[in-house]
Design a binder for these strands. Structure first.
Lengths: 195, 195
DNA sequence: GCAAAAAACTAATGCCATTAGCATCATAAT
DNA sequence: ATTATGATGCTAATGGCATTAGTTTTTTGC
């Protein structure tokens, strides 16, 4: 009873599918095996364990998010690009809540993986910020701030903290992003003007 | 072999102690029992289960954080109060990283508990914002934004996303908070001036 | 065709939370 | 003082989980 056409890639794909479906960043080897119609221990022919697998899923999720961010800012400049990036980030969280959560549950992962994920996501941000004429230190500060705002907002929204109040969450997000852009302009003005 | 002086409160206290010590928001009934020098099933005489206990720990953590925020803003106004609140929030996360994480891992909790926790933490923020003369909608938006910035920053810092870059994390936090205050002033100016 | 590697299986280990049922002790009522 | 009751502890058992060991079967490379 061998050869069911299962490879590391097939396992990874199924894991992603399950996380997308359930919307939670947790994986069960048992359920994974069940869906692949094999017994649980057979999974270990393809992956080292559940953490190994989760690391791969995290990498995949970060790459997907990165792609969306890059696509969103392609051909745009300045505030347009920033707004597009913020919108794409939120869309990703809305459409792929499970994957989004995975990118933020890096605490359990080896540090090398979390650094890798951090870089994948911060690069599109640096790309946009590069048009504001900040020096290197300021770029890093403002990259941190943008990620904080976006991730902070999305994770609180996802946690349901905004639910018990009828006020538009989208509008709040606009306020947050607009606040950031204003602050960024004020900072950039200290160096030289930006269009 | 009965009566070891264990009550629900003693269990809760030990749970908090363990979470503080390990810095992670997870509880093991086995380890908890071991530290209390009883057998695991005996815990069930005092708590319904691990989720029940975690809900209580979350409540406790939120109350502690709330106290710190209220103390920080006591007697302060406007930007002073905002800066103090932001500083106290970060101090709490630094000094009680486990408890801080618990307040943010509400996903697993019943919604009633997460709403309760959300309210405990948002009230000090509304208190500070009330001095800026915003209308009710704007207050809610800006409360959401402040929590997003603070929580987003602290959770990314905690996740180690800022570690691989030598630039001062404290300075980045100042940039974030300053950006928020600037934006808030711009918004408030639309209504009337604030001192 | 055959040897070796790959991939599936069964069986077993050990961790965990939780439940059931029993024993013991403190206390309050008789 | 004695006895009933309830609270608190225990042991034993269940069932879920990830993981490992060892075996069998199939594919693949020569």
């Amino acid at each position: 009873m061998a050869k069911k056409g299962i490879s590391r890639d097939v396992v990874l794909t199924k894991a992603v599918e399950m996380i997308e479906r359930t919307g939670t960043p947790v994986l069960s080897m048992r359920e994974l095996a069940e869906e692949l119609k094999i017994k649980t221990p057979s999974l270990y022919n393809h992956v080292k364990g559940v953490n190994d697998l989760l690391a791969d899923v995290s990498r995949y999720a970060a790459e997907e998010l990165r792609k969306k961010l890059l696509m969103a800012i392609a051909g745009k400049n300045g505030d347009d690009a920033l707004n597009a990036l913020a919108g794409a980030y939120r869309n990703f969280a809305k459409e792929h809540i499970g994957l989004y959560k995975v990118t933020n549950s890096v605490s359990a992962l080896p540090k090398t993986v979390s650094v890798e994920i951090g870089t994948l996501i911060s690069e599109p941000i640096f790309l946009v910020l590069s048009q504001y004429g900040l020096d290197e230190e300021q770029s890093i500060h403002w990259q941190r701030v943008l990620r904080s705002i976006i991730h902070g907002f999305l994770s609180q929204e996802e946690a349901g903290f905004f639910q018990h109040c009828p006020l538009s969450v989208e509008a709040s997000y606009q306020v947050a992003v607009h606040c950031y852009i204003e602050g960024l302009h004020t900072e950039a003005r200290g160096y030289h003007n930006v269009g």
